[in-house]
Each structure stands twice: as C-alpha cells, then as structure tokens.
C-alpha cells in the first residue's frame, strides 16, 4: 500500500510543479504621445535621420501626475492579485547595471566585460504586456474633464490585447489629479476583464510569436530550395512548424529561396521540462532539428525581443 502511495506522489508531484505557470510580467509606461506633448523625449541621429524616443527617466523624475497614475494602476492590479513591474525601479536598475558593467573587471586578467553596442541597445525594460497609459485635460470654459486611454500591448505579438478609453464627466470644482484618479479607477474593471480574456486565450491556444529564417550567402549554395530526401528545406521547416505549434496554428507569411517568415505562430507556454517558452526557445528547438542528420546545418539564433526571433541558416 505504502509503495503505491509513494508511486502516486511521484507521479502527481512533477505534474503539480509543471502546472504552476509563470505570471506574465506587466508594466505601465506613458504613451509616446504623452511624452512628446510634455517634452519628455530624446532625439538621436540614426543614419542621417533624427529619431525621437521617450525619456521615461526624466518623465518619472519631473511629473507628479505620471507617478500617481502609475501608482494607482499598480495598486488596482495588485488588488486583483497581479502586481506589476514598476517602471521607475526598472529604469534605475538598468542604469545601475550599465554603470556597474562599465567599471567591472575580472580578478584574474583584469579584462573588462564583453559588451557590444547591440547588448547596450537591448538593455531595455522588458515586460510580457506593456500597459500604455495616456491622458489629456479638456477645458471648456470653467469646466474640466479628462480623456483617458489605457492600452494593453502584447510584447510578443505587438497586438493590442486590452483597452479602456473614454472621457469623464466635466467638473467645475474637481482638481485635475482627482479627475485622473477617478478615470483610472473607473476604467480598470473593463480593462482587467479584457486582459482575463487574453490570458484565457493564451492558456488555451499558446503564445503568439514571429519566427524569421534567413539563408546565408556564403557560397555554400544552401537555400530553402535545397533538397533532402526528396523534400525542399522550406517544406521540411514548414512540416516542423505544423508538428510543433499549438493546434498547428501558424501562418507562412513570406517564402523565397533565401527567406522564410512565419507569423501568428502559436507556441506552447512551456517546454516539456516545464521551463517557460519564448520565441527564442522555440527557435532553438528548430535549430536543434536542423543541426541533426541528415541536414547537419549550422544555425545562429538572433533574439529580437520576447516575441520575435531570427534564425540565420548556414553559418554562425
């Protein structure tokens, strides 16, 4: 009897562990429009063109309304059992890591850390879902109202998965922070209902990502039309996608002899060992298949964010 009991526990325990899924990371950020309107932007020259990006650090240091809006959304989400990542703490942490890395050396040889410009560029605040908040004050004579917009953007698919927007009742007496606070709290129920629906879809149908494959022009004549056992490489990859996506859901958006683009690829939330899966992990599984016989193809996985991955086929 005891033997059976142990056997049962041994079977059930790993299943329980596997069922404990990771909470998606959510973070509130001000919208680009709001940052631009309030002057919290930085301008860079990139290849002759000026690029404007939001300056979250300065916005958080200088704007009290933004702090109270983020704080209010954080409180309301925490009440729903969903604590959010805090933008100000994340920005500070990234800055600290950059500073530490620049002065860090190894004790044996005194070498500094290897860090490419791409590494520095990639060191940005990452969340599974970004809650982009925007608001504006409308004035009509002595009356004031707030137009509020909260969008939930899935960082994997770049799709808007939840949203709440509207203009509150005009008021003669209420102060602007009070109107903003009221807007946040009034729209939260609708927003969280839509977020719940998105999570349900994700738990049932998997995460949505994009996988790109690019052949290398290295004179080896390896393209997606190269044949193995009578099948073109592109076809083999297509079949692998069919077998490894949730409910066989994916779209082959583009296909040439040198380039394949799969989007709306529904990947499982977890690997077979229970580890969380992202686009990078899924692309690595494809790479593992390609480097085995009879293909023996060397591939390089280039991570392009949480939901997009490039597989360079033919060379590292």
């Amino acid at each position: 009897m005891r033997k059976y009991l142990f056997l049962l526990i041994a079977i059930v325990a790993p299943l329980t562990l596997m069922a404990q899924a990771k909470l998606p990371k959510l973070m509130v950020v001000p919208s680009d429009v709001w940052c631009s309107e309030h002057g919290y932007v930085q301008t860079y020259e990139v290849m002759g063109e000026s690029e404007v990006i939001p300056d979250y650090k300065r916005a958080l240091q200088e704007n009290r309304d933004l702090l109270s809006v983020i704080s209010k959304i954080n409180i309301l989400m925490a009440e729903r059992g969903f604590p959010l990542q805090d933008l100000s703490q994340t920005v500070k942490s990234i800055q600290r890591i950059t500073q530490e890395n620049s002065v860090m050396t190894t004790s044996t040889s005194g070498s500094s850390l290897a860090e490419s410009p791409v590494d520095r560029l990639r060191r940005i605040a990452r969340a599974d879902i970004i809650l982009e908040v925007d608001w504006g004050i409308n004035e009509n004579g002595p009356k004031r109202s707030v137009t509020y917009n909260l969008r939930g953007l899935d960082a994997y698919s770049n799709k808007q998965v939840a949203g709440a927007e509207g203009t509150g009742a005009p008021s003669f007496s209420a102060e602007v922070p009070v109107l903003i606070e009221e807007a946040v709290q009034n729209h939260m129920e609708n927003f969280s209902t839509q977020l719940r629906q998105h999570f349900d879809d994700m738990l049932t149908n998997g995460r949505e990502v994009t996988i790109e494959l690019q052949a290398v022009d290295n004179g080896m004549n390896l393209t997606f039309e190269t044949e193995y056992n009578g099948k073109e490489l592109g076809e083999i990859i297509d079949e692998w996608m069919h077998d490894n996506t949730v409910e066989h859901r994916y779209t082959k958006n583009d296909a040439t002899e040198n380039y394949l683009l799969f989007d709306q690829v529904r990947i499982p939330l977890y690997k077979t060992n229970g580890q969380a899966m992202d686009a990078d992990g899924f692309a690595r599984q494809l790479r593992n298949m390609l480097r085995e016989a009879p293909y023996n193809i060397t591939c390089k996985v280039v991570n392009r964010g949480l939901g997009r991955c490039l597989l360079i086929v033919g060379e590292k």
Binding site: L23, E79, F199, L203
Partner: peptide, 22 residues
C-alpha cells in the same frame, strides 16, 4: 462594495481571478 464582493466571490471559487491559470 464591488472590490470586497469580487474578492469574496474569488475566494469562494465562483468567479475567476485575473491570475488564475498561472
């Protein structure tokens, strides 16, 4: 008392939490 009602119904298991399933 909407928030208190929601929390109690979630505790009773008759409505789903935002984080359920994870």
């Amino acid at each position: 008392a909407r928030d208190r009602l929601r929390k109690d119904l979630e505790s009773a298991g008759v409505i789903r939490k935002l984080s359920s399933g994870f």
